[in-house]
C-alpha cells in the first residue's frame, strides 16, 4: 500500500467542485498513490468541508517536484503581497 503518510491542517477558503462553489475548512495532504495522475506516488491535497455529510472535496494530485515548486510559488506571491502592504 499505500504509505499512509497523511498530514492535516485547518484552512479557510473556498473552492469549486462538480457541485459548484463551497467553503472548505480543512486540507488533508498525503504522499501516497494518486487516483488519476500517472505516477506511483504523488502529493495529494484534499480540501474538504469538515463534518460535511456530502463528502464535498476539491482533490489535487501533484508530482512531488510540482508540489515543491508550488510551495515556492505561493511563498513568492505572499512575499510580494506583504511588500505591497497586504495583510497576511
Amino acid at each position: 500500500m499505500c504509505t499512509m503518510i497523511i498530514e492535516k491542517t485547518k484552512v479557510q477558503g473556498s473552492g469549486k467542485g462538480n457541485k459548484g462553489w463551497f467553503k472548505f475548512s480543512q486540507a488533508n495532504v498525503s504522499f501516497d498513490h494518486p487516483t488519476h495522475l500517472h505516477q506511483d506516488y504523488s502529493i495529494n491535497i484534499d480540501f474538504i468541508e469538515d463534518h460535511s455529510k456530502e463528502n464535498k472535496r476539491i482533490a489535487i494530485e501533484l508530482t512531488p517536484k510540482s508540489a515543491k515548486d508550488l510551495i515556492h510559488t505561493i511563498l513568492k506571491s505572499l512575499n510580494k503581497g506583504e511588500k505591497m502592504g497586504l495583510k497576511i
Binding site: I6, T35, N44, A59
Partner: peptide
C-alpha cells in the same frame, strides 16, 4: 464511511488513517 464516488470515500478513509 458514507457513500459517493469511490475515490471520494477512499480520500475520507485515508484521512482517518484507514
Amino acid at each position: 464511511d458514507g457513500h459517493g464516488e469511490p475515490d471520494d470515500i477512499a480520500a475520507k478513509v485515508r484521512a482517518q488513517g484507514g
